[in-house]
Design a protein around this nucleic acid. Structure first.
Length: 455
RNA sequence: GCCGGGGUGCCCGAGCGGACCAAGGGGCUGGCCUUGAGAGCCAGUAGGGAUUCACCCUGCGCGGGUUCAAAUCCCGCCCCCGGCGCCA
């Protein structure tokens, strides 16, 4: 069984064109890919024919009398010259074909809304009681687009997460961090650090209780590996490199979790494999320009709990639903009102066939902000990583499907808590579900995180 | 990081320049046999290309090189085991 995209290149190029159109990317590549694949196959056949000829001669040589040997060796040498040339050609065509093939984005799932950018993404679900400041009511209604949603009106405007963190609570210092490390870094202190820990434990606790295997993965990967998990855009925007080494910092545990079966075969019986990884995430945020420079919403490093599933192709859409519903369960537990959106085709990353984002309403910003991203990558990553399943009973092999979803990204979730659990006096209530993970620590907050002047 | 030993198919393991281009065993899958199981026998069990079948190429950790010919010789890298050093 081959890769779904290569299959289309050979058997159904129209469908491939249609797919690229859906993503609003350049379609002209397709003919080139088809042409290259055809050329690759004919050149391969020529090379193999020449190799065969050479093998035949080589085979005869040891059984020949000495003088005949000499002429045969000459013949073989001559053949080698032609062969080397053809092989060089093959290699060139192959590299070109491969790099073009790998530049193709994943096929878009049928039920993804079509549109060039995020404005075409479709909310499919709202959950919870949204806290809306009275002057933002109109904006809120616009953003919920007439959907039936539950909300309460706030008479006072909550303080934005950044000011709440640094000025009201006095538990963060991004200025010092930017002096010593750069912008988008931070120092967090005391109760916010406890909050970070408790979020991770909460997510890990829930997912392991559902049978996900807990993993602490490597935080750096080799170039070849990281390139096969992500697309070039992500690489450029996100990935830090270790100087003078072929090592890259992960941008999420998804990367090392996907790499866990790099170039391996998985027995069909062992699928699905469900993992929950905990790791820091390092991101350059190169494409973000001046977005979200204030506070800790968009930062170069944070802690993250990640869900990851390897599945049989025919089962992957079920697990996609499972992953988003796990994430929802986590945010429902936290009591953060959210919406789930089905990301538009033009806004999908190259890896994903379909992506759900979970966005929490931020009362101070009057915006929904992304907390979770849940993707089915189908066989796109698996093809690059050469991860296949083996069905021994039916003597069949195929690429597995890989899926990933955020469970909790610490700093982002903290910003949501800072805005949604804020009292008018500036105190932050600790979400009830986190309290049991804080109980055992003497210094950890128990019910409220209080403003600095109140202490 | 240094010194020594090693990496062969799903697993164990032989081969250490050419003569059925990986022996032999185990496992797994299918078939025969059997009331059923087992034993026994036969076949299949890396990737790719072509194809009605037969077929061909590549593959012995990875990448180069020497040779008409490389699992086998040479160089670089990765990993594993043992010893020394360093370290949380």
């Amino acid at each position: 069984m081959s890769w779904s995209i290569l299959e289309l290149v050979r058997n159904n190029p129209d469908k491939l064109v249609e797919n690229l159109r859906k993503r609003f990317v350049d379609v002209s590549l397709i003919n080139k890919v088809i042409e290259l694949d055809r050329k690759w196959r004919t050149t391969l056949q020529e090379v193999e024919r020449l190799r065969h000829e050479h093998n035949v001669i080589t085979d005869q040589i040891p059984r020949l009398p000495l003088e005949e040997r000499k002429t045969k060796i000459e013949e073989a040498k001559k053949l080698l010259v032609t062969l080397k040339e053809k092989e060089k050609e093959l290699k060139q065509v192959e590299e070109e074909r491969e790099s073009l093939l790998k530049s193709l984005p994943n096929l878009v799932s049928e039920d993804v809304p079509i549109g060039p950018d995020e404005n075409y993404s479709v909310p499919i679900k709202f959950w919870g009681r949204f806290k809306v400041y009275k002057d933002d009511l109109e904006e809120f209604k616009k953003q919920t687009g007439g959907m039936q949603v539950d909300y309460e009106v706030l008479e006072w405007k909550p303080v934005g997460h950044a000011d709440e963190l640094e000025r009201v609570l006095g538990l963060g210092n991004t200025e010092k961090a930017s002096q010593v490390s750069g912008s988008r870094f931070y120092y967090l202190f005391d109760d916010i650090v406890w909050l970070d820990f408790s979020l991770l434990l909460y997510a890990v606790d829930l997912l392991t209780s559902k049978g996900y295997r807990l993993v602490l993965p490597p935080y750096m990967l080799r170039g070849e590996v990281i390139h096969s998990v992500i697309d070039l855009d992500t690489f450029k925007d996100a990935i830090y490199k270790i100087e003078d080494e072929d090592l890259y910092l992960i941008a999420t545990a998804e990367h090392p979790l996907a790499a866990l079966y790099f170039k391996e075969e998985i027995e069909k019986e062992n699928l699905p494999i469900k993992l929950v990884g905990v790791s820091p995430a390092f991101r350059k945020e190169a494409g973000a320009a001046n977005k979200d420079l204030k506070g800790i919403f968009r930062v170069h490093q944070f802690h993250k709990v990640e869900q990851f599933v390897y599945s049989l192709p025919e089962e992957s859409w079920n697990y996609h639903k499972e992953l988003i519903s796990n994430a929802e369960e986590l945010f429902q537990g936290l009591g953060l009102a959210y919406r789930v959106i089905n990301i538009a085709s033009g806004d999908l990353g190259a890896c994903a066939a379909k992506k759900y984002d979970l966005e929490v309403w931020m009362p101070a910003q009057a915006k929904f902000r992304e907390m979770v991203s849940c993707s089915n990558c189908t066989d796109w990553q698996a093809y690059r990583m050469k991860i296949r399943y083996v069905d021994r009973k039916n003597n069949k092999k195929g690429y597995v499907h890989t899926l990933n979803s955020t469970a909790v990204a610490s700093t982002r979730t903290i910003t949501a808590i800072l805005e949604n659990y804020q009292r008018q006096d500036g105190a932050i209530e600790v979400p009830k579900v986190l309290r049991k993970y804080l109980e055992m620590f003497k210094a950890a907050p128990k019910d409220y995180i209080l403003p600095k002047k109140a202490k």
